[in-house]
C-alpha cells in the first residue's frame, strides 16, 4: 500500500457565541475519536501546548478541552514569512453517556492530548450465556 502524502490543512477558527475581550485567536483542534468495548478514546492535536496548559473539564455530559499555547518566546521574534497562524485551542463535545469525571485519563504527548473515557458499566456489551 502506498503511503499517503501529507498536505497542509487550514486551521479552523472557533466559532464563538460571544467574543473574548482579548485579541487572541482560538482554533478548534483536529481530533480522532474511536471506541472499543471498554472506553471511548480521543486524540486531540494541540501543537505548542505543554502538559500543564491543558484543561479537561466535564460538566454533565459536556466535555470541554482547552489548551493554551506559550507565547513568551515570540516576543523577540520578527516575523518574516508565515504559512500557519498560532493561537489557543478549544473544543467541546457532548458525550452520549454520563461518565464519571474522575475516571477520565488524560495524557499529553508531543502536542497531542490522549484521552481515555471509560464507559459506564451498563453500556458495555455483555456476553449472555445460552444455556
Amino acid at each position: 500500500m502506498t503511503k499517503q502524502e501529507l498536505e497542509i490543512k487550514r486551521k479552523n477558527e472557533l466559532e464563538k457565541k460571544g467574543e473574548y475581550t482579548k485579541a487572541e485567536k482560538i482554533f478548534t483542534p483536529d481530533v480522532d475519536i474511536y471506541e472499543n468495548d471498554e472506553a471511548l478514546m480521543m486524540e486531540v492535536e494541540m501543537p505548542g501546548v505543554k502538559k500543564g496548559s491543558v484543561e479537561v473539564n466535564l460538566d454533565n455530559n459536556m466535555l470541554s478541552l482547552r489548551g493554551k499555547i506559550e507565547t513568551s518566546e515570540y516576543t523577540d521574534y520578527r516575523p518574516l514569512y508565515g504559512e500557519y497562524n498560532i493561537g489557543h485551542y478549544e473544543r467541546v463535545f457532548e458525550l452520549g453517556e454520563k461518565i464519571n469525571q474522575e475516571k477520565i485519563k488524560a495524557n499529553m504527548e508531543d502536542g497531542v492530548l490522549y484521552l481515555t473515557i471509560p464507559k459506564a458499566e451498563k453500556v458495555k456489551p455483555r456476553l449472555i450465556e445460552v444455556r
Binding site: 502524502e5 501529507l6 498536505e7 497542509i8 486524540e43 492535536e45 494541540m46 501543537p47 505548542g48 515570540y74 523577540d76 521574534y77 520578527r78 516575523p79 518574516l80 514569512y81 508565515g82 504559512e83 500557519y84 498560532i86 504527548e109 508531543d110 502536542g111 497531542v112
Partner: peptide, 23 residues
C-alpha cells in the same frame, strides 16, 4: 500545500523556523 507549514522569524542575527507537527 506542502506539509508541514513553516513560519519564519528573525531574531538578532538568527533565523528561526517553526513548524507544527503534533505527534
Amino acid at each position: 500545500g506542502s506539509y508541514p507549514g513553516i513560519n519564519m522569524f528573525e531574531m538578532d542575527d538568527k533565523l528561526v523556523l517553526k513548524a507544527e507537527v503534533p505527534g
